[in-house]
Simulated scan of single mutants.
Amino acid sequence: MRRLAIAFVVALVSPAAPALAWWDEGHMQIAYVAYKKLTPAARDRADALLKLNPDYANWIAGAPQGQEQLYAFVHAATWPDDIKMKPDYYDDQVTDSTAKQLVPYGHLKHAYWHYKDALFSADDTPLPRPDSVDAVSQLKLMIAKLPANSDASETLRSYSLSWMIHLVGDLHQPLHAIARYSAALPDKGGDRGGNEEQVVAANGETLALHAYWDGIFGGYSTVFGAVFDADQRGGLSSVTADAAKAQIIDPATWAQESFDLAKTTAYAAPVRTDKQPAELTREYETNARETARKQAALAAARLANLLEVLLR
């Protein structure tokens, strides 16, 4: 609970802080459901690659005997967020010459890899040029490197997989695919995917709209806790993804879907276009939870399908 409380404080007092889609619980539940869907051959290949991640020993520490690989895969889903807090990892900018480079286990945080901000104006506010490096551009590079017949080293494949497990989840969080501009928020970045709008949830908490969506599945959790929650009655394991949509493994399509959902659901009334807090209604929160569950289930199915193709 301490880390969850810290996350809420960061969301409230530090607008420049990088976004954390779904927080730990959401990312780990998506990874868990995806891992269960993989064939033994794809699992074995994923397991072998993740063993090359420098944090692997920490991931499996305390794992029940025989479940080390599962725990590693589920824990890997939070690794791109975890490195943001490592003292030997450094902030960098989307305009840097290294922004698009895949450097196996280098020490850059690449915070801008976590989202694809399609720009949107609520009132014809002029839009700047979008960034050319984002979650979609980088995920496409990683997809190209992961197959055994690519020119990538095993370490680069491991690095790509460690990011991919996370980024698939990111791209299914609607507010990781949009930046809304308005007369009240006209500057570069706009509302930064809901980070600049405040809402009041049913529990009385005032927080950024983006943080509200990130926290729908909960905050900090152990792997055991995430697996337990996913397997509970009504948990993510019981949500059936649309079979036809699950076959779509194009990151650009995922981002477009999330962009559309952001406009229709995440920004739905009573959310405002300025920084004044909006009190969320029961209807809004119900729709948000249902949308998040469907998106997370779809992310899990697509992650599994994508890895089946890439890890043959």
Rank of each mutant, 00 (worst) to 15 (best):
R180A: 08
D191M: 05
L185V: 05
Q247M: 09
K245H: 03
N195F: 09
A255L: 08
D250M: 05
S158P: 08
G219K: 01
W254F: 11
F259G: 00
D187H: 09
A208K: 07
F224L: 12
T265R: 07
A201H: 07
D231R: 14
I165R: 10
K245R: 13
E205V: 13
Q256S: 08
A202W: 01
V239W: 04
F228H: 14
G234H: 02
E196S: 12
G218F: 06
A269E: 14
E257C: 05
A230W: 04
L236E: 03
T264F: 00
V227S: 06
G219N: 01
Q198T: 15
A202L: 13
K263V: 09
G225A: 08
D214W: 03
F224Q: 15
G234A: 12
L185F: 02
L161M: 06
V223N: 11
S238F: 12
M164H: 09
A262E: 09
A152Y: 09
Y220Q: 14
V168H: 08
I178F: 04
D260G: 03
D187S: 10
N203C: 10
T265M: 14
D191G: 13
A230V: 04
N195W: 07
N195A: 15
E196L: 11
L261M: 02
D187Y: 07
L261G: 00
L261F: 06
V199S: 07
G189P: 09
P251L: 00
S162H: 05
I216T: 05
Q247F: 00
T155G: 01
Q232K: 11
S150N: 08
W213Q: 12
L167E: 06
I165C: 04
K188M: 12
F217K: 02
G169S: 05
R192A: 08
D229V: 01
T206G: 00
A241E: 05
D231A: 12
S162T: 11
S153T: 15
A262W: 10
F224C: 01
V227W: 02
L171I: 13
S221Q: 12
V199G: 07
F228G: 01
Y212H: 15
D250S: 14
E257F: 13
P174Q: 01
G218N: 08
A183G: 02
Q247A: 08
G169T: 02
D151E: 09
A269T: 12
G190A: 03
A255V: 06
Q232Y: 06
G193I: 00
Q173K: 01
S153V: 05
D250T: 08
I248P: 06
Q232E: 13
S153A: 05
I216R: 05
